[in-house]
C-alpha cells in the first residue's frame, strides 16, 4: 500500500468534522422539534389531526400518477428514439409541449380543459370524472414527459454492442428491448426515477388547486380561519419534509447498494 492510500484511509478529526452529515442532523432536529410541538402544543395538535386526513389522498394520488407516468414515459421515451419519423415526432411534440409550460398551468389546462374535452370526444359523462381522477390524469401526463427523457437517456446509455449481440442471436428489436436493453436501462435509471418520484410527491401539492383534499388542501382549509396560518403551514411543511426525507434516505441506501452490486 502506498503512503497516499494510507493517508486516504486514516481520517483526521478535521475530516470527520467535515464529512459528518450536519444537514441531516439539522433537518432531523427540526422534525423532532415539530414532533414534540405536535404532541404537546394544543393548537399544533389539532392542526395536525385535521391535516393528516389528507395523507392518504396525497400518497394515493402520487403512487397512481407515478405508475401511469412510468408507462407513459416508457412509451414516449421509446418513441423519442424510434426510427419511425411519425412516431418520433409525436413523442417529441408531447415531451416539448409539457416541458414548455409551468406545472401549475398544466394542472389547470389538463384537468379543466383537456380531460373534459377528451371525455366529450369519447362520449363519457364529464361530471362523473372526479377531481381526484383529473388530478391523477394531469400529474401522469406531466411526469410522463419528464420520465420519457430519463428512459431515453437510460436506453441510450446501454452500449450498442448489447443490441447487436441480441439481434445476432435472432431476437427481434422488441425482444431485445424487453429482455436485454430495458432491464439494464431501468437499473441504471432507477435512482433518477426515485428522484422524480420525490419531485412528484412535492408537486402533488399543486392538485389542491382542483380542491382535491390532499394534505395541502387540508392545511389551506384549516388555515382558512384567522390566526391559524402558523400551525397549519408548519404542520404541512413537517409532513412533506418527513416523507421526502425518508424517501431520499431510502434512495441513497438503494443507490449505494446497486453501486456495490456492480462491483
Amino acid at each position: 500500500m502506498t503512503t497516499l492510500e494510507q493517508q486516504a484511509r486514516e481520517k483526521t478529526p478535521a475530516d470527520a468534522w467535515a464529512q459528518f452529515p450536519w444537514w441531516l442532523l439539522a433537518i432531523i432536529g427540526f422534525l423532532v422539534f415539530m414532533g414534540v410541538l405536535l404532541t404537546v402544543g394544543e393548537e399544533y395538535n389539532s392542526a395536525f389531526l385535521f391535516v393528516k386526513d389528507g395523507i392518504a389522498v396525497t400518497l394515493r394520488t402520487t403512487l397512481t400518477a407515478f405508475g401511469i407516468a412510468i408507462i407513459l414515459g416508457l412509451f414516449a421515451g421509446l418513441g423519442r428514439i424510434s426510427h419511425n419519423t411519425i412516431i418520433r415526432n409525436i413523442a417529441i411534440t408531447y415531451i416539448e409541449f409539457i416541458r414548455g409550460v409551468p406545472t401549475l398551468v398544466l394542472i389547470f389546462t389538463l384537468a379543466l380543459v383537456v380531460v373534459p374535452e377528451g371525455a366529450d370526444l369519447l362520449k363519457l359523462d364529464v361530471k362523473a370524472i372526479s377531481p381526484n381522477s383529473r388530478a391523477v390524469a394531469a400529474l401522469s401526463i406531466i411526469y410522463g414527459a419528464f420520465l420519457a427523457e430519463i428512459f431515453r437517456a437510460g436506453i441510450e446509455s446501454i452500449p450498442k454492442g448489447q443490441m447487436e449481440a441480441a439481434r445476432s442471436v435472432g431476437m427481434t428489436v422488441r425482444q431485445a428491448m424487453q429482455y436485454i436493453i430495458l432491464p439494464q436501462a431501468i437499473r441504471n435509471i432507477s435512482p433518477a426515477l426515485g428522484n422524480d418520484f420525490i419531485a412528484m410527491l412535492k408537486d402533488s401539492s399543486l392538485v389542491s388547486v382542483l380542491a382535491v383534499r390532499d394534505i395541502t388542501q387540508q392545511a389551506r382549509l384549516y388555515a382558512g380561519s384567522p390566526f391559524r396560518f402558523r400551525e397549519s403551514y408548519l404542520v404541512l411543511t413537517f409532513l412533506y419534509l418527513t416523507m421526502t426525507l425518508v424517501l431520499s434516505l431510502l434512495l441513497r441506501w438503494y443507490e449505494r447498494r446497486i453501486r456495490q452490486d456492480a462491483k
Partner: peptide, 15 residues
Amino acid sequence: RAEVGMVFQQFNLFP
C-alpha cells in the same frame, strides 16, 4: 440470424 453465430471482439455478454 439464428443460424449465424457471431462472436465479437468485446464479447458483448448480457451483464
